[in-house]
């Protein structure tokens, strides 16, 4: 592992976004995820790393796949998992996010995983709670575990991130996935080109270190990765583009378009897909697609994130004093071996 010498690469209590994470911190999560991915291949898919800890999934927006992925990740770390879906709770009775979270925290929760439509909702909770907060998507702001799993998948498929050229295609303006990908990829040395209609790809993204293009055909031959974002049809109401048909004609990834791409290109999609809109079925299921690998990697990445924010150390350094009482010896043993095995993977 090429983590900097000295202190541990990870000492954050929360994961609110990928903005501001260093290359070392990103590598630390990815390396830890790689160790955990190995766990999934065993017959007994559980480690006791978070035994006795409580993780609550506080979801104010419906999202089956992210919620299930976090729940499964926590379960594999032997944590207790509570699902708190806002539709079935007091959130609908006008209780504020802060009060709800504080109430839940009072029940002895260690990690709050929050999904909310308001940008900054996770930052807001991190300010008012003692528990660790993991952002599972806050409006158009960030979706850091999705960004991490996308970067993880790229690194796994292509062996590196540095120097790659990645196209992110779709409704960039409203996409938290795009933002987290941009931070992660730029910090690890990839080039990012954002592709979509001018109404959905504001030029201001150039100031985040990205290129902006409105022609998918121009971009395809020169990229190593194509990440197709989901087009949210409800956005059509605000009329940022004239019709789905026109969107698909200009920005849909079809087999015919794929012929312009490099042969070793990989195709990604954070899901759920609108088959036939932003991505054609034969591309989504085709040989260059790594979409299902993204889902599998999401589990490993979320295990790594939960483990690290709870004070875990992949290289088995001294425990975080705030979490000193937590039992994690056995899990640490598992990881020490794994970390050694993946040494120098970057």
């Amino acid at each position: 592992m090429t983590r900097s010498a000295g202190g541990p690469a990870w000492n954050r209590r929360h994961l609110l976004g990928l903005e501001g994470l260093s290359a070392d911190e990103l590598a630390c999560v990815l390396d830890t995820a790689e160790s955990f991915k190995e766990v999934s291949t065993r017959s007994v898919k559980k480690v006791p790393a978070l035994r006795g800890r409580v993780v609550v999934n506080l979801f104010y927006e419906p999202s089956t796949r992210t919620r299930v992925s976090f729940a499964l990740a926590a379960t594999r770390l032997s944590a207790d998992v509570v699902d708190f879906a806002a539709s079935t709770s007091s959130a609908r009775k006008g209780e504020t996010l802060r009060d709800t979270a504080r109430n839940i925290e009072a029940m002895g929760v260690d990690i709050v995983v929050v999904r909310h439509s308001a940008p900054g909702a996770a930052d807001h909770l991190a300010r008012v709670l003692d528990a660790s907060v993991v952002n599972a998507g806050d409006g158009a702001h960030e979706h850091p575990t999705q960004g991490l799993l996308d970067v993880f998948t790229i690194r796994e498929a292509l062996g590196r991130v540095q120097g790659l050229r990645v196209a992110i295609v779709g409704d960039i303006a409203h996409s938290r996935v795009a933002r987290s990908n941009i931070w992660g990829l730029r910090t690890l040395g990839a080039e990012v080109v954002l592709v979509g209609p001018s109404t959905l790809v504001p030029a201001a993204f150039r100031e985040m270190g990205c290129e902006v293009s409105h022609s998918l055909d121009d971009v395809l031959p020169e990229v190593d990765v194509i990440n197709m974002l989901r087009i949210q049809q409800e956005r059509l109401l605000a009329a940022p583009f004239p019709s789905l048909r026109e969107y698909t004609r200009l920005f849909g990834l079809t087999a015919r378009r794929m012929a312009r791409a490099r042969p070793e290109v990989i195709v990604m999609h954070p899901g759920p897909m609108n088959r036939g809109v932003e991505i054609a079925p034969d591309v989504a299921d085709g040989p260059r697609s790594v979409i299902l690998r993204q889902v599998a990697n999401g589990l490993a990445v979320r295990m790594a994130v939960l483990y690290l924010v709870a004070g875990g150390r992949p290289a088995a350094r001294e425990a975080d004093p705030r979490r000193a009482a937590a039992p994690r010896g056995e899990g640490r043993e598992v990881l020490r071996g794994a970390a050694a095995r993946t040494g120098g993977a970057r």
Binding site: P119, G120, A140, H141, H174, P202, A204, F205, E207, M208
Partner: peptide, 17 residues
């Protein structure tokens, strides 16, 4: 203004607001 809640610029783009 649309649903704007802050100045439209580089920071709003980063924050997703």
């Amino acid at each position: 203004n649309g649903g704007g809640v802050m100045h439209a610029g580089r920071v709003s783009v980063v924050l997703g607001l």
